[in-house]
Write a protein that binds this DNA or RNA. Structure first.
Lengths: 243, 243
DNA sequence: TGCCAACGTAACACGCTGTAACAGAAGTGG
DNA sequence: CCACTTCTGTTACAGCGTGTTACGTTGGCA
């Protein structure tokens, strides 16, 4: 069947690359992330079969993230943590985690537990997909997440490329939050090739520019796809979401 | 949701009653058993939502039992054992166990893990029936998996070649999951002629193109047989399955 | 004001995909 | 056996999507 796509969430770059490498050597696609925002960007952009979520993420907390995600999504989550006391494990299970792995872990055992959870979850993938396809409205525009185009306020149908569609989803999924180029690249990176993320150059700027030319009335003075100088981009219009 | 019914399999009577009491105090129905024969008797008699299976059962072996059950059933199984070395745990996951709990265990943590596995199973079970399905409906089309043709929304009968039928089945069987060309070739290659898989060139693209020209309203702008650039193809319509 | 980094975008290059045209292969009926 | 049809893979070419480069513009700051 198709290759499982995992999200590896850890704020320690070394740990993250160790885990992604391990997974990639074992025929998984491993996508790195380090914050709730990046997780949400990935979830809104493409299929994710399982999340390996570190509990201690700098100022964020894996337990809380897990609790919030569970309220909205069915995606399998395995918590990973150096905190291995029973009450800490239980807190993890309490918020809906599928498993709780203590660090340091045996790599092969970790793989076995990942496979076990995925096997149990296998058949829910198409449900998860449908849940992701929401309809967004902003400023007269209508964007059906299932399609690669959107309806203009005047009734025209504007065709988007797949990458433009993905970009729009990422920005819409994080309303009023400025996203850095790195976050966007990470979220759009469907290859699982974590090296590629660095050699992206100005691709995101081009992508934003092309999307602007399609949906901004005056692309020179963008109202929706705003630039946050020194940071990245932000979707600044009022958004309403359905379903 | 009715009260979960668990099977507690252990040959030590003391351990068994400790576990069943614990479970019953926490709103489960706990049924004791001590051999593969008793497990099978319970499974054929009534609903079992989860099996807690001890690894060392006198002359029987929980690992082997789990392996055999897995081949026939999808019932969630948690292995319980005093053998807690990594290779012993991995052996458990290898035969399809959903979790592996070392003895002695914290009762509350054990309950949490039981709940986690059951939740995952419940979330996923809704689509289990798709395994044996036959007739697919999507977007007004009806495809009877037994025939080499399909009914259009307008009532026409569109003839498909063998290979087109096979392609459609592969895509329908993996709803909303992008399949690479290699995966499709592999899936279509029923002959086991592994040499053929390599010399496929652009055959899949042609196959997809021809199927598109038969079932897409506007083959230039496909809505169902979508391309995932750099990856492969995906069937993007909502699918319902019968029988 | 001048400087510099960040940003916008035109122009280009390259790879991926759609598809027409062709060529075998496999069946069909005589 | 042949002529014919149908199915399927290959090739070639055109078009499109996307990343890179280069250069002009903008905005912040001293």
């Amino acid at each position: 069947m198709s290759i499982p796509r995992l999200l590896v969430v850890d704020d320690d770059p070394e740990m993250r690359s160790m885990m992604t490498q391990l997974l990639q050597q074992n025929s998984f696609i491993a996508l790195p992330a380090s914050s709730e925002r990046e997780i949400r960007a990935h979830l809104s952009n493409g299929r994710i079969d399982l999340i390996l979520l570190d509990v201690m993420l700098g100022d964020e907390n894996g337990i809380d993230i897990c609790a919030r995600l569970r309220r909205e999504q069915d995606v399998p989550i395995i918590l990973v943590s150096a905190l291995s006391a029973d009450h800490q494990r239980m807190a993890g299970y309490e918020v809906g985690a599928d498993d709780y792995i203590a660090k340091p872990f045996n790599p092969q055992l970790m793989l076995a537990r990942v496979r076990a959870v995925m096997q149990r979850a296998r058949r829910s993938s198409s449900l998860a997909y449908r849940r992701r396809t929401r309809t967004f409205r902003f400023d007269g525009w209508v964007f059906d997440g299932k399609r690669d185009d959107l309806h203009s306020p005047e009734g025209y149908l504007v065709a988007l490329s797949q990458r433009e569609t993905a970009l729009l989803k990422v920005l819409l999924a994080n309303p009023h939050i400025p996203l850095t180029r790195d976050e966007i690249v990470t979220a759009l990176d469907v290859t699982g090739d974590s090296d590629k993320s660095e050699a992206q150059g100005r691709a995101i700027d081009m992508l934003v520019g092309r999307l602007r030319s399609k949906i901004e009335t005056n692309p020179k003075d963008p109202q929706m796809l705003r630039t946050e100088r020194g940071v990245g981009y932000i979707f600044a219009a009022d958004i309403s979401v359905e379903e």
